[in-house]
Structures are given as C-alpha cells and as structure tokens.
C-alpha cells in the first residue's frame, strides 16, 4: 500500500522538479534567492571550518580593531573576531527561522483543518485567533520571553505563537471553500471517514499556500529573532547571534561601525534570500495570490 502510493507520487514529483527548473530559468530572482540561501546554509553548516578563530575567544590587546587581514570583519570591544562570530551567528538565525516556520505551519494546519470542518469548534477557535491577532507579534513575543528565561528554544516558542493564527486562517479558508466541492461530497458519500477526507482530499490542497506562507514566516522569524536578541530579550549573550553582536556594538558605533555593519549585512542578505524564494514560489504555486499582490 505504502510503496504503491509512493510510486504514483513520484511521477508528479519528477514533473514538479522539471517545473521548478523551468521556474528558476523564468524567475532569475528566485534563482538568486536560492543560491544566496544555499550559501547561507553552507556557512551555517561549515561554521567550524570557515571561522578563523574561536567566536568566544577574548583578546584584549586586539580590541576594536578595524577589518584587516587577520580579522576580516574587525574585532569588538573584547577583542573577539567579528567574522567568526558572524559566521556562527548564521546558525542561530537559520535554526530559529526554520523551526518557527515548521512549528507554526504544523500547529496552524491541525487547528485550521479541525476548525474549518467543525462549526462548533470553529466559533470558539476563531474568536481566540482574532484576539491573538490583535496583539502585535513582536510585543507578544517580548512578553512571552519576559516570563521565561532567555534561551534559543524559548525564542522559537515565543515567535511561533504569534504566527499560528495567520496559518489557521489560511488553512481554514481553504477548507471552507473545498468543503462544498463535489469531490469532497463524493468522498463523504462513499463513506470515507472524516480523517480520510481531511487528510487525503483537503490537506493536499492546503500545501501550496502553506509552503508560500512558510517562507514568509521563516523570513520574519529570522528578523524577529535578531530584534529580540538586539533588545536583550532573545538569544542569551554567550551564544553569538546577529542580533546580540549588533546590540553589543551599538555603544561603540562611532569608533567601530564594523561590529554592526557586517552581522546586519548577513541578516539582510539572509532575509532577502528567503523573501526572493518566497516570491518565486508564490508566483508558481499560488497564482491567485500572486495576482492580488
């Protein structure tokens, strides 16, 4: 049963790959985004090999040195190498972005499917979601962080919660529009269980908009992680992340602008890459949305 399903699934998959390739040629910006993103992932994975020194190593003699052959991006007020810290910082950003996107999509998908299918649950869930959406995301995240100790996984949870309502709304709208369709009614008429109808007929139709939404969530999570760390309510200072490297550098802005310049540049490029990929995916996977934007 499983293998049979996989075989039939691999056919459209190959077609998808061909589609993706054509897409990249037609949307050079998406190819740019993918390349940039791949480069960032490589930097994150190979951080121990790419870094020129220990990102935590203090070197008081070489404080606040401008970029040079020894320290490509200069050093900070404790003599730590900004290049190595920036390279390691990519790990936190990408992990947070990926985890927040996956967790909020998963939670939003489950809640949205149930809510779209059951009117009674829907009434309650949507009230809660409306309320959560009224709270600005970054404030909600800051407030959650203030309660628990600052750590990477608390940051992930704090950034996931504000994103869930938007995913729920998206999934729910797809379910509502499909519920009245003939193929869903036919499936119910043949005696399919609720789980089968949702899992087999409705869920696959939510995937395309979800993937698009996921890339945007990922991009905003990367930015928000940096905001939180910058404000002192995110990744703890002993772990180098782009946000807290910049927070440490702000006092020395007039003397050593490179402490802020380079991590910020990496942050901007990463977010740009994810957004470009998202725009490309949206144009192909979700033409209706693309026309609206």
């Amino acid at each position: 049963m499983l293998t049979a399903e996989r075989e039939t699934a691999s056919q459209p998959l190959r077609r998808r790959q061909a589609q993706l390739w054509r897409l990249c040629r037609r949307h050079p910006t998406m190819l740019c985004g993918l390349t940039l993103l791949a480069a960032m992932v490589f930097v994150a994975l190979a951080a121990p090999y790419l870094a020129t020194s220990d990102p935590l190593e203090l070197n008081p003699i070489d404080r606040l040195r401008p970029p040079s052959a020894n320290h490509w991006f200069g050093t900070d007020m404790l003599g730590r190498d900004i290049y190595s810290r920036t390279v390691y910082g990519s790990r936190i950003s990408l992990i947070v972005g990926l985890c927040v996107a996956l967790l909020s999509l998963a939670a939003g998908l489950v809640i949205g499917l149930i809510s779209g299918y059951n009117r009674h649950v829907d009434a309650v869930v949507m009230r809660i979601m409306d309320g959560l959406m009224a709270i600005p995301a970054i404030l909600l995240a800051i407030a959650l962080i203030a309660l628990v100790s600052a750590s990477v996984h608390n940051v992930i949870i704090a950034l996931t919660i504000p994103e869930i309502p938007r995913v729920v709304r998206l999934v729910r709208s797809v379910v509502l529009s499909l519920r009245e369709q003939a193929f869903v009614e036919a499936s119910i008429a043949t005696g399919a269980s609720v789980l089968r109808v949702l899992g087999r007929h409705i869920m696959p139709n939510t995937l395309a908009p979800l993937i698009v939404q996921g890339t945007y969530i990922c991009a905003s999570a990367v930015i928000f992680e940096a905001y939180l760390s910058f404000l002192g309510a995110g990744t703890p200072p002993e772990i180098p992340s782009w946000g807290n490297i910049m927070a440490e550098g702000r006092t020395y802005m007039q003397l050593a602008f490179w402490i802020i310049l380079f991590p910020g540049l990496f942050l901007a490029l990463t977010v740009l890459a994810i957004n470009l990929v998202g725009d490309g995916l949206r144009d192909t996977l979700d033409p209706k949305l693309a026309r609206r934007m």
């Binding site: 940096a226 905001y227 910049m246 910020g264 901007a268 977010v271 740009l272 957004n275």
Partner: peptide
C-alpha cells in the same frame, strides 16, 4: 521587506 529596521537605523 528584507532590511532589518535597526540595521537601517544604524
């Protein structure tokens, strides 16, 4: 959309 607010500020 991509440039972080605080970096732009700096």
């Amino acid at each position: 959309f991509s440039i972080p607010v605080f970096w732009l500020g700096f």
